[in-house]
């Protein structure tokens, strides 16, 4: 078989700095969607805890750094950065090539996100370790707070260019206004 060259979703699009906002792609490694079967939540959580030190996350929460796991919808979570262990009580699907993840960092990151994400991301409400499935521009996606001025956005890989375009527009708007 031919040797395939890996191509990141945002190749040629990122990294970029607009105003004070740095946008870069994050390569989290393998991504597995874990959906515990009916009644299989605690058994799945136990295996994950033994393997990685964190269990299955409760809604709107992300656990761990690298590897990490983020809640990703009703009874679903994305395990990122590690091969998925055998989980007999859950459906596990390799989605490593299915998602694009970008990191946004800068003093105005919340102002930029306020233009594309319709939920309250301010620190007292949306703390580190919080994640949410929501809209990113016109797309279904997810947003996770990684630090005081750092967020990660997840969107479908096929929409990587759209994601970058939406973020560029929002960041340009914020930087144009703040320089006046």
């Amino acid at each position: 078989m031919a040797k395939l060259i890996p191509s990141p979703p945002c190749a040629g699009l990122l990294p970029k700095t607009i105003g004070s906002l740095a946008i870069r792609e994050v390569d989290v490694g393998p991504i597995t969607l874990i959906a515990p079967f009916s009644g299989g939540g605690s058994a799945t959580s136990d295996v994950l805890k033994a393997e990685f030190g964190f269990g299955f996350p409760s809604p709107n929460r992300a656990l761990g750094e690298n590897p990490r796991i983020a809640w990703f919808g009703l009874n679903q979570a994305l395990l990122m950065g590690a091969a998925c262990p055998a989980l007999p009580q859950a459906a596990c699907v390799d989605q490593s090539d299915g998602w694009v993840i970008v990191c946004l960092e800068g003093a105005k990151v919340q102002d930029v996100l306020a233009r594309v994400v319709p939920i309250d991301l301010r620190a007292p409400v949306f703390k580190q370790g919080h994640t949410a499935r929501t809209l990113v521009g016109h797309m279904h996606g997810a947003v996770t707070r990684m630090g005081d001025q750092r967020f990660e956005l997840t969107a479908m890989r096929s929409m990587a260019a759209t994601l970058v375009h939406e973020l560029e527009r929002a960041a340009l708007g914020v930087s144009a206004r703040s320089s006046q």
């Binding site: 809604p59 009703l74 319709p118 939920i119 499935r133 929501t134 809209l135």
Partner: peptide, 9 residues
């Protein structure tokens, strides 16, 4: 599950 959200979601 998610809390209060906008209608467009």
């Amino acid at each position: 599950i998610c809390g209060e959200r906008d209608r467009r979601e």
